[in-house]
Structure formats: structure tokens, C-alpha cells
């Protein structure tokens, strides 16, 4: 057991780092579905936009202030894209038509990004100071991946506190539960929901940028990220914050530890596991109770 742990510990930490990125991307997808009831298939494209912002702003090397500026820029762009998508989808109630609309936006965005940045794999440097390695169990491990886990954990806790403990969070939850009543007490629910869409897209954009030093940025990555994100939120439970976390951790381990241990069946693991979860627990592992938690 100990020797197994010793041999696989780093793979498992890799899985947690992947889960951290997946959580940032998927939680927006889940919140947007939980609050707006919109299945946003442009989410992968938003995430890829974040990665390309890193490519554009951080050429070759990145000091810590530069990297933080890039993260803020990615967040701002994500917020704007999310706001635009919220307006675009506000009149489209049917899920299939939302899929048509948001996948259309994703196709356009993917083509524009390819036009600007080309079809080759672009890399994004980790920020100076975090690009080194630390020693874990006698092996060298990239410090940057550990920092991603930390950043993602902080964001997850912040999100939870905002949604559960603040007035803004109460407004979001109330809007999900009874929109007409919230409107009646004088709150512009459109702004509340648009804000959630914006924050969700901003998180996807940040997630894409933070993942870029590991995954790079290239056309087609948006589809991969979207599929992984969908699996995460469906396995975890659509509209649920904790569900997205559990789903991300599960998918992260499947994609690293699972692939390392069952390499023969690697390509079946992800969707096989998703099918298994959905058939035993159709609403996911931790389904949302009222929507936005």
C-alpha cells in the first residue's frame, strides 16, 4: 500500500491539479445552468480565449505582476463575453435552441481565434517564482501545479461564502427560487442573472489561462475542455457548486491515475464512468437542492 502510494502520489497530485483547473471552468458552466437554465456550449471557447490572452500578453517569459495582469485581463474579457452571452440567450428559452446559439458562437469564436493566433500549439510560461520545482517524497514536482491547486481552492471557498453567506448570494439564490417575487421587491433579476453569467464566464477564462502553462493553447482545445466540463458538471450534479468540485476531483483522477493504471482502457474510462454514474444516480453525485449551491 505504502509503496503503491509512493509510486502513484505524484500522479494523484497531477490529478488534483487537473481537477483544480476543471473546477474553475466547470463551476461556471454549472452555475449558469443552475441560475439561468442555459446550457452554454460556448464555455469551452471562453476558456480557450483566456488561454490565448495569456499567449498575447505573456510572450516567452512572465514576471509575477505581468501574470497577474494577464489573469485580470482574462477575467475582464470573460466577464464581458459572459454579459454578451447572457443578453443573447435571454430570449431563447428552449435548451436545444440555446445549444444551437451557443455552439454557433463557439464555432465563430474558435475560427476568429484560429485566424489571430494560427493553428499551431502556443505555450504560455508559468510566472517567475512559480516556475521552479519542489521536492515531494524525494521527487521533483512543478511548483506551478501546486499553486494552481491553492488558487483554485481559495476561489472555491470564496464562491461558497459569497453564495451562502452574503446578501448578493442570497439575491442569486432567491432569483433562482422565485424570480417573480424577487422582481416584486425591487431587484433587477436580469442584472443578477447576467452577473452570474459574467462571473461564470470569467472563471472559465481564468481557468483557461491558468491551465495554459500546462495544456498550452491550440484550436480544438475548446471542444476538449467543453466535453470535460460537461462530464464534470453532469457527474457532479448540474447547478451544484459542491457537485462541480466532486465531479472535477473524480474526472481529474480518472484522467491521470485511471489512465496510468488502466492504460489499456484509458479512452473508455471517462465516458464509461459518466454513463455509470448517470445510470445509478441520474441527477449526479451531489445534485443541487434549489439551484445555486
Amino acid at each position: 500500500m505504502l509503496s503503491w502510494l509512493d509510486a502513484n502520489a505524484l500522479t494523484m497530485i497531477n490529478g488534483v491539479a487537473l481537477a483544480a483547473v476543471l473546477f474553475l471552468i466547470a463551476v461556471g458552466l454549472s452555475l449558469i445552468f443552475g441560475t439561468m437554465n442555459v446550457l452554454n456550449l460556448a464555455h469551452g471557447a471562453v476558456s480557450l480565449t483566456g488561454a490565448y490572452i495569456g499567449v498575447a500578453l505573456l510572450d516567452g517569459s512572465a514576471t509575477m505582476p505581468n501574470f497577474i495582469v494577464a489573469v485580470l485581463a482574462a477575467a475582464a474579457v470573460g466577464l464581458v463575453i459572459g454579459g454578451v452571452l447572457a443578453v443573447m440567450t435571454s430570449s431563447v428559452k428552449d435548451h436545444l435552441r440555446q445549444a444551437l446559439l451557443t455552439l454557433g458562437v463557439a464555432l465563430i469564436a474558435g475560427d476568429v481565434l484560429r485566424e489571430i493566433f494560427g493553428a499551431d500549439v502556443e505555450s504560455v510560461p508559468a510566472p517567475a517564482g512559480l516556475d521552479g520545482a519542489v521536492s515531494i517524497l524525494g521527487r521533483q514536482y512543478p511548483l506551478y501545479r501546486l499553486s494552481i491547486i491553492a488558487v483554485s481552492a481559495v476561489i472555491a471557498i470564496l464562491l461558497y461564502l459569497v453564495l451562502e453567506r452574503t446578501r448578493v448570494g442570497a439575491m442569486v439564490r432567491a432569483t433562482v427560487a422565485d424570480r417573480a417575487m424577487v422582481e416584486a421587491i425591487g431587484i433587477r433579476t436580469n442584472l443578477v442573472l447576467g452577473g452570474v453569467f459574467g462571473v461564470g464566464a470569467a472563471l472559465a477564462s481564468i481557468g483557461g489561462l491558468l491551465a495554459a502553462p500546462i495544456l498550452g493553447a491550440q484550436p480544438g482545445l475548446d471542444d476538449t475542455v467543453l466535453l470535460l466540463g460537461l462530464v464534470v458538471v453532469v457527474v457532479g450534479g448540474l447547478g451544484s457548486l459542491k457537485g462541480a468540485l466532486v465531479g472535477a476531483l473524480l474526472v481529474g483522477q480518472l484522467q491521470t491515475l485511471g489512465v496510468a493504471m488502466l492504460s489499456e482502457y484509458a479512452s473508455f474510462l471517462l465516458f464509461g464512468a459518466m454513463a455509470l454514474v448517470l445510470l445509478t444516480r441520474p441527477r449526479g453525485l451531489l445534485p443541487a437542492k434549489t439551484g445555486a449551491h
Partner: peptide
């Protein structure tokens, strides 16, 4: 892909 996207939207 671009034209298909525009068509869908």
C-alpha cells in the same frame, strides 16, 4: 466553421 456558426446564430 465560421459560416456554420453565423448560420446557427
Amino acid at each position: 466553421a465560421l459560416m456554420l456558426g453565423v448560420l446557427f446564430v
